[in-house]
Nucleic acid binder design. Structure first.
Lengths: 180, 180
DNA sequence: ACTATTAGTATCGAGTCGAAACTATTGCAA
DNA sequence: TTGCAATAGTTTCGACTCGATACTAATAGT
């Protein structure tokens, strides 16, 4: 069927038009994508490797991107005590502010009916999962929708990492997430 | 509503994962996007300007991309007789072959139900139109769905450009298209 | 105690990208 | 018809992406 290619074209064109409008200020689309991931990821998932896997990129490329984000003050390095190889990056205030800048596409989406956006969300999620299954990628889903998540009084607990989680943290992306 | 950002994220992530798998062979994602547009556009719409507008890019950038596509033999230059400024590019056989190379995302899409893909197509189209309206972009729709199109015996006719169209050509993208 | 694996970085070359300057046409108006 | 503005395309610049590859340092497994 010809339709597969058409959907693919639509997605790529939409992303391209969005990227064109994402050049504002000091940032390019790739840098913005990293910032936006960082804002949504929990503290176990903010390393170069995780970003690279999430974005379908490589550690080398992402390492470069972090270098310029650090230089420009959007992000700060955080070395791990336990594993001296590991690093993760946190958003600075400037970085956090940059993640909610004007987005033409978000406006366009908000003009659609709830019915349409709900359907769109569901079918895009289906597609994403199917694509990830195809190339062995991980879902990077939300922490509290994970099979290793247990609800606690004020937040939750991860049975995989044996770590307590604040209620905010439980709503973020985790690289270890496996759908419940 | 938070959902707008989520849909935007999904589209960008999907496009990013697709781009990562589009590096195969001699081509990068941007070059592939140009090739793929060329394959779907009619003879009035294959110039650097049109490609740039379609992809949300600039003439300068697209000009660079065409330079390397020509060098690598995917595309040939075609100067216009009537307007000596104008150029358009045609796919070579090699270029045409490159447009239907294995695409992970197309496979993933073909695994979805017809019901889902139909809904997805419709909502992505709605979104695209809404986005284009927002930033004054043109639709680049299909020739025979245009208000300037008239059906003829073997093909059609464009009342805007006063040009006859083969039936194949009438199914292609036109930069002048205005929905009927 | 080795050795394999893992995390991250540096470097290379091709190419993207917006911005801006530039060339060659064509269109329009006085 | 001349004279300038608009249009089509190219070139150059600098920052950066990107995959590939080679590298360093730390940790894990045997």
């Amino acid at each position: 069927m010809e339709n597969e290619h058409y959907i693919r074209e639509l997605i790529n064109r939409l992303a391209r038009l969005d990227a064109a409008s994402a050049w504002q200020g000091n940032l390019n689309p790739a840098q913005r994508a990293v910032l936006s991931y960082l804002a949504r990821a929990n503290r176990f998932s903010r390393s170069p490797s995780h970003v690279a896997e999430y974005l379908g990129s490589t550690r080398g490329t992402v390492s470069q991107t972090f270098k310029s984000l650090v230089q420009k003050g959007y992000v700060i390095e955080q070395r791990s005590q336990t594993d001296k190889r590991a690093i993760h990056f946190d958003l600075t205030d400037k970085g956090a502010r940059a993640t909610d800048e004007p987005k033409l596409m978000s406006q366009a989406i908000s003009k659609m009916t709830k019915r349409t956006t709900d359907g769109l969300t569901a079918s895009l999620e289906t597609l994403l999962l199917s694509l990830l299954a195809e190339n062995g990628g991980r879902a990077f889903g939300i922490c509290n929708q994970c099979r290793h998540f247990e609800t606690r009084e004020n937040g939750g607990h991860c049975t995989l990492l044996s770590e307590d989680l604040s209620s905010i943290e439980a709503t973020k992306i985790c690289n270890e997430q496996e759908p419940a």
